[in-house]
């Protein structure tokens, strides 16, 4: 079952581009990464899905229901953590969380138990006022309010800012647990190592358009390879003028490049050189991401 499905979802701010013709399908149980630099359209997509902004074109469904018609019903089963969290300063953390819980049709005892459990895991002091909490602790409040109703869909928009590495790890563990219980996760980030660690599938968004959607494993293993070659004599650019070579750099006797395509093609060319050393590596997600972005 598709949990999120968008068809040509478009949002303009007046004449300014937000997102254009975004097609996205997130299946049940997936941890779906959404990567792109600031301003690419990640938050606009998420905010449109959540009904915080009205789409100017296209359509989107969550749990099979149109987001513009069934917003409140859909949001009963969504947990959302924005990149920056802001809450009511005069409230205590526990009061904010109880207020948050009051919006959901879940048993009060269940949400209260969840609040205690989650705040215990994250080491959050619930008796403090929101304005007395550090940014990291406010973020923990955000995590608890996003998960306290055990949502079927968790939407995270660059969620780890302000969290120390230990809490980040606990947070990722919590997400994995929720995912194992059946929750689907949409994870937006520009920190590629996070996405690589967490996600099954990833969509790369550039200038408001999704330019690539692929399984992380496919993206990492089957596509681009990083070649590092050392030659006895300085190589010529012409030696690598074949389709699929990218990011070519030749300095003295050292050559590095990314290659996408059939390995036999490039190996035939390399075999013509006087080789001193060669290594072929899987590029990390960051290299792949930059590869798409530099195009």
């Amino acid at each position: 079952m598709n949990i999120i499905e968008t068809k040509k979802l478009t949002k303009y701010y007046g004449k300014a581009r937000g997102i254009i013709d975004v097609d996205m399908t997130v299946e049940e149980g997936e941890i779906y990464g959404f990567i792109g630099p600031n301003g690419a359209g990640k938050s606009t997509t998420i905010r449109t899905l959540l009904g915080l902004m009205k789409p100017t074109g296209g359509s989107a469904t969550i749990f099979g229901k149109d987001i513009t018609k069934y917003g409140p019903q859909i949001k009963q089963e969504i947990g959302y953590l924005p990149s920056e969290v802001f809450y009511y300063d005069g409230m205590k953390a526990i009061d904010l969380l109880k207020y948050s819980a009051s919006f959901y049709q879940k048993d009060k005892k269940f949400t209260e138990k969840r609040i205690q459990e989650l705040s215990g895991i994250l080491d959050l002091d619930l008796s403090k006022k929101i304005d007395d909490l550090s940014y990291g602790n406010k973020k923990k409040v955000g995590i608890v309010q996003g998960l306290l109703h055990q949502p079927k869909l968790i939407i995270l928009d660059e969620p780890t800012g302000g969290l120390d590495p230990l809490i980040q790890q606990k947070f990722f563990n919590l997400l994995k647990e929720e995912n194992e219980k059946g929750a689907t996760i949409l994870f937006s980030s520009h920190i590629l190592s996070e996405v690589q660690k967490m996600c099954d599938k990833v969509a790369i968004i550039k200038e408001g358009k999704i330019i690539k959607t692929e399984k992380i494993s496919d993206l990492l293993e089957n596509q681009t390879k990083r070649f590092r070659i050392e030659t006895a004599m300085k190589a010529d650019k012409k030696d690598f003028a074949i389709k699929g070579v990218d990011d070519l750099s030749i300095t003295d006797n050292s050559v590095t490049f990314l290659f996408r395509g059939h390995l036999n093609d490039i190996m035939r060319e390399i075999a013509k050189l006087d080789l001193a050393n060669i290594s072929i590596e899987e590029p990390d997600l960051e290299e792949i991401f930059l590869h798409y972005y530099q195009k």
Binding site: L50, L52, G71, K75, I78, F86, Q145
Partner: peptide
């Protein structure tokens, strides 16, 4: 002004 619209309007409420 308190930037709490995200919190409130992402809840299941019209």
């Amino acid at each position: 002004s308190g930037k709490t619209s995200d919190f409130l309007l992402s809840k299941p409420v019209t």
